[in-house]
Design a protein around this nucleic acid. Structure first.
Lengths: 224, 224
DNA sequence: CTTTTGTATTTTGTATACAAAATTCATTAT
DNA sequence: ATAATGAATTTTGTATACAAAATACAAAAG
């Protein structure tokens, strides 16, 4: 008989996770060069699996390779961020639609719990906690209705959106006191098994972020 | 002064292209194991850049890694194909919309040339040529309106769609004599700078493919 | 004959080695 | 002082080496 259940994980997959979270919580900053030898030593491995992981991350656009110059943490221009949010708009619209079609009773409970500390009306103060809930919200919806495929694409975008921190609020573009309403509405549509509504609301939600980004970009260009 | 224009390309990037096209034109078949030593020898390189390229392709889901077992050309289930086409539907809808907004006079000419050998009404015979034009069509629209980001995602899906060849026609799901009408309509909408129409038509176009796939899948399950 | 066990062979994952390229930095020239 | 030059140092890209794991296959047991 064959031993199928074995869960072996290569070093590069572990390193991949480590670097990903280092980018996520800003231990590695956008634009920064990756010191291969140093980082490998720190992680207690050789350069081989590290490079392997970096190659993998290159494809997620979290890392950029400059041949003969090394690996760099990707730095996004605002135009690129707009383009990324446009992709998110249609993809997350899809995942909201699918979620509304397939959500189970247990998943409903979990989804409704996410923003329980942020009821509509009460002003939001803890931006960091809200930012975290926001991320969980988008990830969870992706997971409910989608095959592994879509989930992994969306997770990448999520990290990019996060990595591109805004000077003002903790990784958030729009004011939480505005977005909280969207979130509650989307959750309601999904829990009511309303695919069309869920898709429309999710797209609107992200469309407003895009609008905000475009405004910000226009301001930058004219000179703050 | 710094020498910026230098175009150096690592070996793994070249190998990446080679393997990609090997999968595209079926020299490597879905499900097949990649013989590392042998392939490296054939390409006249060591295993290092080969593995690097395979890692890269793993992320595009063209290659699957089974730890301690090696690399395999990815084999897609029909459910996964349906999921992929759902993603294509919304993403290509977006790229059609953007294309309609930004297309230039020269791009219009090029786009209109693509199906000049396949006028509406005349029955299509050369499926291979049509399949090629189809691919160019989708790639070109992606390139017109999108940043590098979306283009690279869509290209991946395109290859997957192709790699999953249908037993009947050359990588095509729907009958070319039906799809040719869609293609001409989408081109018209884009050239008339009609973003809403272009998006709607493109989504409809892919929605029909999804429907076809679902029907096919249902038949398979009941027993041919 | 089929299944199990044990051994030989191949393949994988990772470390290490090393030439070629890039970077640093002190030195000289402008 | 600034720019140019060129060794000394570091880093990169790739090959090679090798232990550990997987596979293939032959012999033994049921």
């Amino acid at each position: 008989m064959k031993n199928i259940g074995r869960e072996y994980e290569n070093l590069d997959q572990k390193v991949y996770q480590v670097i990903k979270s280092m980018i996520e919580n800003r231990q590695l900053l956008p634009g920064q060069k990756i010191p291969q030898e140093k980082l490998a030593a720190e992680l207690g491995i050789s350069r081989t699996p590290l490079i392997s992981a970096l190659k993998f991350l290159e494809h997620e656009k979290l890392i950029e390779t400059k041949p003969r110059r090394g690996f760099y943490v990707r730095l996004f221009e605002i135009e690129e961020m707009i383009s990324i949010f446009e992709i998110r708009e249609v993809l997350e619209g899809l995942s909201a639609r699918r979620a509304a079609q397939t959500i189970t009773a247990n998943q409903k409970k979990e989804l409704q719990k996410l923003f329980k500390d942020f009821p509509v009306g009460r002003p939001i103060e803890d931006f960091q906690a809200y930012s975290k809930a926001d991320r969980q919200f988008h990830n969870f919806i992706a997971e409910i209705g989608s095959k592994e495929f879509l989930t992994s694409i969306l997770q990448t975008f999520n990290i990019i959106a996060l990595a591109y921190q805004y000077p003002t609020r903790e990784g958030l573009v729009r004011d939480p006191n505005d977005t909280i309403v969207d979130h509650h509405n989307i959750i309601e549509a999904i829990c009511n098994h309303d695919p069309e509504g869920a898709e429309k609301l999710m797209r609107k939600h992200l469309e407003l972020t895009i609008h905000e980004l475009k405004t910000f970009n226009a301001q930058e260009k004219t000179g703050s």
